[in-house]
Simulated scan of single mutants.
Amino acid sequence: MAVSDSRCNETEIRALLFHAERMVLWQSVEAWDDNSLSCSTSTHNDVKNPLRRDGALSSIHLAEYGAQMMAIHGALLVRKNTGGTLAPGVLTSLKDFEMHVPRIDDISAVLTGTAKVLISGASGSIYEFSIDAGDRRVASGRVSVLTLPGATTST
């Protein structure tokens, strides 16, 4: 992966996303280019993770981890290309989502994720993603986002 910018830490990721507090799930961007990025996190081990229910964090929530990688990548691209911020969007579909574990709060390994652009344009984007814990694949799928009508990036 050819890196087009330096790595991003959690503070920088927070500035890129519309999410707040503990809903920012990725802690580091390890590398990125115009077509993909890779991230890492240990937020699945946070007992105060807001996605937990009854003390457990289901692997279904890895769909949100995948969607956030897409948003981070889109925001990095907008910042690089225009100096602006990402326009708001709506998650429109999750396809071919596969979960290989029932829950993720019991995984001690750092989660690493990769997101790759399949289609991107003014009206939205489609990405494929995969998330691993060590050498074990825990989830993969495709996420589509529709840019909200009238939404623009700000500069």
Rank of each mutant, 00 (worst) to 15 (best):
M1I: 14
M1V: 13
A2F: 04
D5A: 15
D5Q: 12
D5N: 10
R7K: 13
C8W: 03
C8A: 11
C8T: 08
C8V: 07
C8F: 14
N9T: 03
E12S: 00
E12K: 06
I13A: 02
I13Q: 00
I13S: 09
R14Y: 03
R14H: 12
L16V: 11
L17M: 04
F18A: 12
F18C: 04
A20G: 15
E21M: 02
E21W: 13
R22D: 13
R22K: 14
M23Y: 13
V24G: 03
V24I: 13
L25K: 00
Q27M: 11
Q27E: 15
Q27C: 10
S28W: 07
A31N: 11
D33M: 09
D33Q: 06
D33W: 10
L37A: 14
L37G: 09
L37W: 09
C39R: 09
C39K: 04
S40T: 14
T43I: 06
H44I: 06
H44G: 09
D46W: 10
V47H: 01
V47D: 07
V47G: 03
P50N: 07
L51C: 04
L51T: 10
R52Y: 05
R53K: 02
R53E: 08
R53H: 07
D54T: 04
G55N: 10
G55Y: 12
A56W: 09
A56T: 05
L57A: 05
S58W: 03
I60T: 08
H61Y: 12
E64K: 04
A67R: 03
A67K: 05
A67M: 11
M69P: 07
M69D: 01
M70D: 01
A71P: 09
H73V: 11
G74H: 10
L77P: 04
R79H: 07
N81H: 11
N81G: 00
G83R: 00
G84P: 04
T85M: 12
L86I: 12
L86P: 05
A87K: 07
G89Y: 08
V90K: 01
V90N: 08
L91E: 02
T92H: 07
S93P: 04
S93L: 10
D96E: 14
F97K: 00
F97I: 15
E98L: 06
M99N: 06
H100V: 06
H100D: 02
H100E: 07
V101R: 09
V101Y: 00
R103T: 14
I104K: 06
I104D: 02
D105Q: 12
D106V: 08
D106T: 11
D106Y: 06
I107H: 08
I107D: 10
V110D: 03
G113T: 11
G113M: 08
A115W: 09
A115G: 13
A115Y: 01
K116N: 14
S120D: 13
S120R: 15
A122Y: 02
S123D: 14
S123G: 12
G124S: 07
G124V: 13
S125T: 13
S125K: 08
I126F: 03
I126R: 11
S130T: 14
I131C: 08
D132Y: 01
A133Y: 09
G134P: 08
G134R: 05
D135G: 02
D135V: 05
D135F: 12
D135N: 13
D135E: 15
A139I: 07
S140Q: 15
G141Q: 08
G141L: 05
R142N: 08
S144A: 15
V145H: 05
L146N: 02
L146Y: 14
L146E: 08
T147K: 06
L148K: 14
T153P: 10
T153N: 15
T153D: 14
